[in-house]
Design a protein around this nucleic acid. Structure first.
Lengths: 222, 222
DNA sequence: AATAAAATTTAGACAAATCTAAAATTTATT
DNA sequence: AATAAATTTTAGATTTGTCTAAATTTTATT
């Protein structure tokens, strides 16, 4: 079956909001989709009719198996396009979201399979989010806030929590990218900022705010 | 300004139909867009309001300068995506149209400029149609029907008139592509078929039908 | 437990793009 | 030139996705 762009956007939003609470509230969906609660109720009823979600009046929505499958297909397209935009067309991290938002609705199985092949079957997008495979499976990678990691241990940046241009600029200035290795040297209790060493460069101090946004994994033996 | 997909499709159709007759009839547009004449009238009025076309009741439509500019932008996107699909993602000629039809409506100036750059600023799409440049300029290349070319002269295939899978298969079988050099050896008056030599292979006979569909340019000396 | 506040749904309306059927206009034919 | 045929437009309806305002249900507070 073929779905409209509006329907696909709802399914995608339900998927993301479900990560936080199993049952998604009408108001949350309205907020995420920048629309009115009444519109959400209408659309949710339609999606129920199309057997994509489970819905109970006044309770909330959640995806059923078919809805989850569809959500993962859309997210797969979105993230593959983001990867393409950054790695092939040399976009910056912060410029890709809006465009991928449009490209994700282009419907062609062959297009996505060939794009995936051309890109070399990437498993993570430019923000470190996993790209679902053809069957909807997600690769796993630790994503722990840099802020509360043990000192002195080597860590690798695996993702960033938000994707504002301001953040991108700051990361660029400190020579930090996905995959960059860092070590926490010390924490300042005064303002919560921390001092880290980035790869083999000299130590830098980063704000509490930034340290919460950077997600890392622990690197095994030193 | 930003236009809807429906509006863009109308503008594109008017552009193409204008190549044949300066003033485009409501019924022709309806036929091309697979819709009802009444719907065309409605939309044409809207496009008139948006200052993209010139329209007179019962007479017909034509693009004004702004409409032409928009049409060429859309065609540029369509043909760049076709080039990408064939040359980067290894689609066959016959598989690209439908997908490009969707991709052409993705709106991002940077996307198209970077795609153009990545592809090396191609001037012709996989069917031999010219790709408008950023300013809407079209490269020129002779496109004469192979059927009525002088015998013995070397010719180069520059375009194909239609893009059915059947045609593609036949061309593949005879080792003919865009850019292939051919020579007309003789014409059979019986059924209008002609004998040609393709590059340095042994001569083949092709139907009148096919000879009309293949467009060529004359190669200068030799 | 009663009432106030918040969240959600219903009812009715609207804009976009389409449709059918009927009316108007243009073009072709006798 | 009158009439028939074809084309085009108008009028009114339909679908999709949205909205506002009012009604309903749930949750929180006194």
């Amino acid at each position: 079956m073929q779905y409209t762009i509006a329907e696909e956007n709802y399914i995608k939003s339900v998927y993301h909001l479900q990560q936080q609470s199993a049952l998604v509230a009408t108001n949350h969906l309205a907020e995420a989709l920048q629309t009115q609660p009444a519109s959400v109720t209408d659309m949710v009823k339609k999606l129920t009719g199309k057997k994509l979600v489970h819905y109970e009046r006044y309770k909330g929505v959640r995806l059923n198996a078919a809805g989850k499958r569809l959500a993962l297909q859309i997210i797969r397209k979105h993230r593959l396009w983001e990867y393409f935009l950054v790695n092939t067309l040399e976009f910056g991290w912060d410029e890709v979201h809006e465009v991928a938002e449009q490209l994700e609705h282009v419907s062609s199985a062959k297009l996505i399979e060939q794009l995936d092949r051309f890109l070399g079957h990437p498993r993570f997008d430019p923000h470190g989010d996993p790209i679902p495979d053809k069957e909807g499976k997600l690769a796993f990678r630790q994503r722990l806030p840099l802020l509360d990691q043990p000192h002195q241990k080597w860590l690798e940046i695996t993702a960033v929590g938000d994707e504002s241009p301001a953040l991108l600029e700051m990361l660029g200035h400190h020579n930090i990218q996905l995959g960059t290795r860092v070590r926490v040297l010390r924490a300042f209790s005064f303002d919560g900022s921390i001092e880290i060493s980035v790869a083999d460069q000299k130590p830098v101090t980063i704000s509490n705010q930034l340290a919460k946004t950077l997600l890392v994994k622990l690197i095994e033996h030193d």
